[in-house]
Nucleic acid binder design. Structure first.
Lengths: 136, 136
DNA sequence: ATTTATTGCTATCGTCAATAGCATTAATCA
DNA sequence: TGATTAATGCTATTGACGATAGCAATAAAT
């Protein structure tokens, strides 16, 4: 009965993403970090002088939806805003935020390793290029 | 800058699913059918005497979340409930629902074909087993 | 200098999934 | 058989994430 739907790549994609993200959510929970915040951490950890809209463009998160994310991250003491000009503000990690970012990076690494491990070896190297072809 | 995250299978999985589901949503919109409803249609189209909780188990949708779905599908005139015993009810397609189910199935086929087409040929046959390994 | 684009924001909505709890009925087993 | 346990369908609420429409201020472009 399940055969039916699990023959469909689109359905499998949805289910796989769901399963993986549930797992990732659980792994991030002890850090009190959400998935999207983890992505933001990964980004600003490596690049300085990113603004909200630059991050949004990169992660394809709309400006309007960046606001509460960054607000929470600021309230948590992880990021600070620094005026670039009268319009733009750089999103900068605080000391606490840097620590959190490293913990996140470590969790990401673990999560990604687990994920790949689930995929049979003969399919493993095809996963990333296949997925990237779907959204790029 | 994107290189960073798009090296991560988990991130790619999330983005790919997102892109694909956005596309699927758009394709279903003219039918006034939502993604989860499409899955339900695909299921009850092929199996008779499914109950809400059987569908839920199959699709891993919680009982509580099945309620508004089936309610909407009933209000739309696509399904009917038929008592099996004092506790369970079969979810049955109406005539209108059968038509809708066929349209959905056709849309699914189109969507799945498009999706596979996006994946470079050399990775194509690996996608389904890789994804199924992740959630199964 | 004026028009256009960008930035950050408010407010609101939609989809999907999760949790906790409840009443009714069916199934189990002592 | 009678009492316990499990299953079914439901209400109510919450959370994460994404989408749209619109606004005021500022920067960039012509």
């Amino acid at each position: 009965m399940d055969n039916l739907l699990s023959q469909l790549p689109g359905y499998a994609l949805r289910r796989a993403a769901n399963t993986a993200m549930t797992r990732f959510t659980a792994m991030l929970a002890p850090l009190d970090v959400k998935i999207t915040e983890a992505a933001i951490f990964m980004l600003i950890r490596e690049s300085a002088n990113l603004t909200s809209s630059k991050i949004g463009k990169e992660l394809e998160i709309q400006r309007a939806n960046m606001v509460p994310m960054l607000q929470r991250m600021e309230d948590a003491g992880w990021i600070q805003r620094e005026a670039i000009d009268g319009k733009s503000q750089a999103i900068v990690l605080t000391a606490e935020g840097r620590t959190k970012a490293e913990e996140v990076a470590q969790t990401v690494e673990q999560f990604e390793a687990e994920l790949l491990h689930r995929v049979p070896a003969q399919h493993r190297k095809h996963l990333l290029p296949a997925l990237n072809a779907i959204w790029n």
